[in-house]
């Protein structure tokens, strides 16, 4: 029986198809930017969900750090660590899409692949910070230590995101005014909203799979079988 997160994931894919169809063919083209503006229907949902993922990582990090010794001893706290690993990786993947989409949008619009647009630059810095979290997890073997260290680094990195945005905004605004799409026609809001939920549901589906993978890898590392710690963290997402 596929877990409920996988069902949500499939629902997300279906919604995504509808959203893309609507965004590509049904919604009217933007008066000034023309068709290129249609990139927004995948770009903005990815942006929102990247932030959602990293926010869940923050919650997972706090969950692990605040879990008492008893919760950890009985293995109930592992679900926070699995969630952190899952949402951080998904956030990094979505963030990578964002950067690529942003560059493909920038080339026809401003003639260069990379403008120091505060939003896109913040995404790039955020990507680097959370890739570093994943790299750190790769270099620490002991599960408890890895969980605590990555939770601490996630906390420090997350607090930095607004700071990066405002400092880059100040720093970049000296050169060119920030561009944003013209007034959003109601017919354009629909595909945007559909895809926002589509990507969210897909993320939830991915989380279900990725947390399970994280648990299996940890158990394989610890050489334990399907022990009581899984009972408590069944459907993780």
């Amino acid at each position: 029986m596929p877990r409920k997160t996988t069902i949500i994931g499939i629902l997300g894919i279906l919604l995504y198809i509808v959203g893309c169809y609507d965004g590509l063919l049904v919604a009217p083209a933007d008066r000034f930017m023309g068709d290129i503006q249609r990139i927004m229907y995948v770009h903005v949902p990815c942006a929102w969900n990247t932030l959602v993922c990293f926010t869940i990582s923050l919650v997972a990090a706090l969950g692990w750090l605040l879990s008492g010794a008893r919760a950890r001893a009985e293995g109930r706290a592992w679900k926070w660590d699995e969630l952190l690993e899952a949402t951080t990786e998904i956030g990094v993947v979505l963030g990578a899409f964002l950067v690529v989409q942003g560059m493909l949008w920038a080339k026809p619009t401003w003639g260069v692949y990379w403008t120091w647009d505060p939003r896109l630059t913040t995404v790039a810095v955020m990507e680097l910070m959370f890739v570093a979290v994943l790299a750190l997890r790769g270099f620490v073997d002991e599960p408890v230590r890895r969980a605590t260290w990555s939770a601490v680094v996630t906390l420090v990195a997350y607090v930095n995101v607004p700071l990066v945005y405002f400092s880059v905004k100040w720093w970049a605004s000296l050169h060119q005014v920030q561009s944003s799409p013209s007034t959003v026609d109601p017919a354009m809001v629909l595909p945007l909203r559909i895809n926002a939920f589509a990507v969210l549901f897909m993320s939830i589906g991915l989380m279900g799979l990725r947390t399970q993978l994280a648990r299996r890898q940890r158990q394989a590392l610890l050489g334990e079988s399907d022990s009581d710690s899984t009972a408590s963290s069944g459907g993780a997402a």
Binding site: V125, M129, A132, V153, N160, S167
Partner: peptide, 8 residues
């Protein structure tokens, strides 16, 4: 870990 963090 440090360099991306200290961007601001």
């Amino acid at each position: 870990l440090l360099f991306p963090l200290v961007v601001p």
